[in-house]
């Protein structure tokens, strides 16, 4: 609770928390504030009221305008909030679970197992992240699932490392030694004593990563291997805007809305996670002061 208090007291992190709460609300209320239309096969397919190639400015029907191909920006952003949470949290969840399993096995058993697992980590670290994710999504096809798999497959290594070093540290502590002498088995030792203690460093990492995974996903969209066309995904929408940044001869800001709104959404989201993560690190990092 001390942690939470600190986060709320710090102006930067409290801003982050408030804005994340807003995003959660938008995601939860999506069916009400942006109801899908009857002909949509799935609510994540952004509806198009017409098919003009050029973006259209804001109007009564389209609060935030439309992108190229007339995808409604407002709708896309509202439902895209869910996508963002899915991508961010999904990737972080999957990769931290892999990382925790690998890291704790390595640390707990040590010796040759540790050596092998850490070399595996090294190998994965030696793969350039974006290119590896690109290859995987190219192989698996477009869509949310493949994207989460690809980003997790090459994003779990830092969790493994952190968990491993934390466990090695905690393992030497007295209460663990004591529990061992009482014959507590390995499994419950890890789950009941060690992991809870190693939780905070992972939390810091995960918070920071949630935002950047959404960015990585948008980079994949930029490189052409993101979600399906028209899928309510900020990365997709901002990727649409890239061609309209230039505007038109005498009116350089003609299509500003195509960039501004998706840009703001993605930026606020990532920024908030980073602010929270940054502050969390200040509190939880054993090396810094607890004020």
């Amino acid at each position: 609770m001390k942690v939470f208090k600190y986060l709320l007291k710090n102006p930067l992190s409290s801003f982050g928390i408030v804005s994340l709460l807003l995003f959660v609300m938008v995601a939860a209320l999506a069916p009400i504030i942006a109801p899908p239309q009857s002909f949509q096969l799935s609510p994540y397919e952004t509806p198009r009221s017409s098919f003009w190639a050029t973006p259209q400015a804001m109007s009564k029907d389209h609060f935030l305008g439309t992108t190229q191909g007339q995808y409604d920006i407002y709708y896309g952003l509202v439902w895209g909030t869910r996508t963002a949470f899915k991508v961010g949290l999904g990737v972080v969840l999957v990769s931290s679970i892999i990382g925790i399993i690998v890291g704790s096995i390595a640390a707990f058993y040590g010796g040759i197992i540790d050596e092998v697992l850490m070399r595996v980590v090294d190998v994965f670290m030696a793969v350039p992240f974006l290119i590896a994710a690109m290859v995987l999504t190219t192989l698996l096809g477009k869509g949310l699932g493949p994207m989460i798999i690809a980003l997790s497959a090459f994003g779990w290594m830092s969790y493994a490392r952190v968990i491993r070093s934390e466990i090695l540290r905690i393992k030497e502590m007295e209460f663990i030694q004591a529990a061992r002498t009482y014959g507590v088995n390995d499994f419950s030792l890890i789950f009941r004593f060690i992991l809870p203690n190693a939780f905070f460093p992972v939390l810091v990492l995960a918070t920071m990563a949630t935002g950047s995974m959404v960015l990585a996903a948008s980079a994949l969209s930029f490189l052409g291997v993101g979600t399906e066309e028209g899928y309510a995904d900020w990365g997709q929408f901002i990727s649409y805007s890239r061609n309209w940044i230039v505007g038109q001869g005498d009116d350089p800001f003609k299509y500003w809305y195509t960039l501004f709104f998706p840009g703001m959404a993605i930026f606020l989201f990532v920024f908030s996670w980073n602010l929270v993560g940054d502050a969390l690190r200040d509190v939880l990092d054993p090396h810094t002061i607890h004020k």
Binding site: L12, I238, F267, V270, F271, N274
Partner: peptide, 25 residues
């Protein structure tokens, strides 16, 4: 401290391609 953190996190929170395209523009 806050100003510096905001300034650097800003760069970290925006898709590189958008920032790059704006620079190019």
């Amino acid at each position: 401290d806050h100003a510096i953190r905001i300034f650097t996190i800003l760069g970290w929170s925006f898709p590189t391609f958008v920032f790059g395209l704006i620079m190019l523009l």
